[in-house]
Structure formats: structure tokens, C-alpha cells
């Protein structure tokens, strides 16, 4: 699934990463626990989370996560956005809850990997 499709399905707002919207994600992961994300996520994944601290970006960087969706309308701080820009990571924000957002992507054909 293209990141652009993720954005459309979740009616999400693009925070940064317009140039990478046509990149493919192969799986999705929804979690607020970066410990679990680090233990289970594969590459080319879209990460959906309610956390918006620098550790989310670090975790994404280590795992080669291409896009992060902040749920419940959350927006990260300018410092966190800057970190994402430096690492070519797409940031999206949706008003959906984590449960709803994961459900929509699953329905759209994305799987847990």
C-alpha cells in the first residue's frame, strides 16, 4: 500500500514527507509501546501510535519505518518534526483513534506483516 493511500484512508493531515508519499509500506503496526514495536516490527512498515516524543522517531529510524501516523489528532513538537525531516520519515496525523485507524488500514488490505 502506498503511503498516499494510508493518508487517504485515514483522512490524515500530512505533517512532513510529501516527497515520499508514493513509497510502499508492506505492513502496519499500532502501538504506544516502543519496546514492543522494537521487538516485532519489520521494515517498510507504517507505525500508528498515540506517542509523539523523540523516541518514536528514533524507534522508526532504527527499524526503517517509512511513515508514522499520530492518532487522536496528535501533533508532535517542532523538534520531533525536524528529526523526521532529517531521516526522510513521513509524518501523518489523523483524528481517528488507534483502534479505528488500524481497522481502516486492515480493511484497505494492509496486514500486520
Amino acid at each position: 500500500m502506498k503511503i498516499r493511500t494510508v493518508k487517504e484512508l485515514l483522512d490524515a493531515r500530512l505533517i512532513v514527507g510529501e516527497d515520499f508519499l508514493d513509497q510502499e509500506v508492506l505492513s502496519g503496526c499500532g502501538s504506544d509501546l516502543m519496546s514492543d514495536v522494537l521487538a516485532f516490527v519489520k521494515e517498510q512498515t507504517v507505525l500508528l501510535t498515540g506517542l509523539n516524543n523523540p523516541q518514536v522517531i528514533r524507534t522508526a529510524e532504527v527499524l526503517d519505518v517509512s511513515a508514522i501516523v499520530f492518532v487522536r489528532g496528535k501533533t508532535p513538537s517542532p523538534e520531533v518534526i525536524e528529526m523526521a525531516i532529517e531521516r526522510d520519515i513521513v509524518l501523518l496525523s489523523t483524528d481517528d483513534t488507534l483502534f479505528e485507524a488500524c481497522g481502516k488500514l486492515y480493511q484497505g488490505g494492509l496486514r500486520g506483516g
Binding site: 504506544d32 509501546l33 519496546s35 514492543d36 521487538a39 501510535t49 524507534t59
Partner: peptide, 15 residues
């Protein structure tokens, strides 16, 4: 609250 401390760190390093 920062998303850590789930008790997965050391097992994950080993894995």
C-alpha cells in the same frame, strides 16, 4: 509513559 519499560529490551537484544 515514554513507551519503554515493557520488559522486552534484553530478550530483544539476544534475539
Amino acid at each position: 509513559e515514554l513507551g519503554f519499560g515493557a520488559g522486552m529490551g534484553l530478550p530483544n537484544i539476544k534475539r
